[in-house]
């Protein structure tokens, strides 16, 4: 009953909105006519008979013409405004539909990645399984060039396994998530640096913390992935500067925290900078560093899924700084 009443009200409002230009112009016209009559009446009461006979029809005619012109002016204004509003509404609906279409397409692609990653994993289990049996069976008979060919098969199968795992992880971000919680970034960075410690020490890198870090609202797994990728990349691509340094920092920026991971490493080549967050992009093939080129795409996806953003500044031979913004959340 109440719904029927509400829908009736809505229909009435819509009908009024549609004919608004008509209603408003009639109002203006009627107002003009009333004003003319009032003026005319005042004029009749205050002037001589001759003046009245000449001027009063003129007042009436002018007043009526003015009212019609004002009515028509309002009509055209309102019609134009109504047209514009309808256009804006139409475009908004079109945009919303396109947006929804895009989101559905994205979901489809992610599901597709998820499915093919699983399907491609099955033959890899077989390849590596039989390779392992073959190696055990052949033992010392597998040697020289044959051993080299065999090892290349195994290495490629392993690389593909890592690639698929990364691809699967990429498809999981935003789709399969744990409950958000407060994650202490001081201990998270400590953990990450601890995990990278062997390489940090080998390359004699100095890791500096520029102050304390806040707690973030998110999942520990995803925040770990974001900063492990960024700090890990800094370690991987530190190159050979005079005093290799990675600086971790954070500052407040309105309703966001902005984290910085700065290094004085090899930097990102200028021509590659527009592709940094694209999946499967690698920029230093000559350095012999392992990787699939999925890491930074995962970083971007995690950060954006959580309402933040990621960008970088880099100069070859000088270093790279990644900036990650993350919403402060309700408890700031």
């Amino acid at each position: 009953m109440q719904e029927a009443h509400q829908s009736n009200q809505a229909e009435k409002k819509e009908s009024f909105d549609k004919n608004r230009h008509f209603h408003y112009s009639i109002l203006v016209f009627a107002g003009g006519i009333i004003l003319t009559f009032l003026l005319w009446d005042a004029y009749l009461n205050n002037n001589s008979q001759i003046e009245k006979s000449v001027a009063s029809p003129l007042i009436l005619a002018m007043g009526s013409l003015f009212s019609i012109a004002a009515g028509l002016f309002v009509w055209s204004l309102e019609s134009r405004q109504g047209f514009m509003e309808r256009e804006v509404h139409k475009r908004t609906v079109e945009l919303e539909n396109k947006n929804q279409e895009l989101q559905e397409k994205n979901k489809e692609i992610e599901n597709f990645i998820h499915i093919i990653s699983h399907d491609l994993k099955a033959p890899l289990v077989s390849i590596q399984g039989f390779a392992s049996i073959l190696k055990n069976e052949l033992g010392a008979a597998l040697q020289g060039a044959n051993l080299d060919y065999f090892n290349r098969i195994v290495t490629n199968a392993k690389n593909m396994t890592v690639l698929l795992q990364d691809l699967l992880e990429f498809s999981r971000v935003g789709r399969i998530e744990d409950e958000k919680e407060k994650v202490d970034m001081n201990s998270l960075f400590q953990e990450i640096v601890g995990e990278l410690r062997p390489e940090i020490e080998k390359k004699k890198i100095q890791v500096k913390n520029a102050g304390r870090f806040p707690a973030l609202l998110g999942t520990k797994k995803r925040l770990h992935q974001v900063f492990m990728n960024l700090v890990g990349n800094s370690v991987k691509y530190i190159g050979d500067p005079n005093s290799p340094t990675i600086t971790l920092g954070c500052r407040e920026n309105g309703s966001f925290y902005e984290f910085q991971v700065r290094d004085n490493g090899v930097g990102i080549p200028q021509e590659a900078q527009s592709k940094v967050f694209q999946i499967f992009q690698r920029f230093h093939p000559g350095m012999g560093i392992e990787g699939t080129g999925v890491g930074l795409s995962i970083v971007k996806k995690i950060v954006e899924t959580n309402g933040g953003s990621v960008r970088f500044e880099s100069a070859p031979g000088v270093g790279t700084t990644f900036f990650v913004t993350w919403p402060k959340g309700r408890n700031g």
Binding site: K121, A122, V125, Q128, S132
Partner: peptide, 28 residues
């Protein structure tokens, strides 16, 4: 299974599975 998909694992346990083995690429 080839995956460690939490929802699938939970569903299988609810239906009475006794355990899970992920088919690792590492044969040993």
């Amino acid at each position: 299974t080839t995956s460690k998909y939490k929802q699938e694992i939970n569903r299988a346990y609810e239906l009475g599975a006794s355990g899970f083995v992920t088919k690792s690429e590492d044969f040993s």
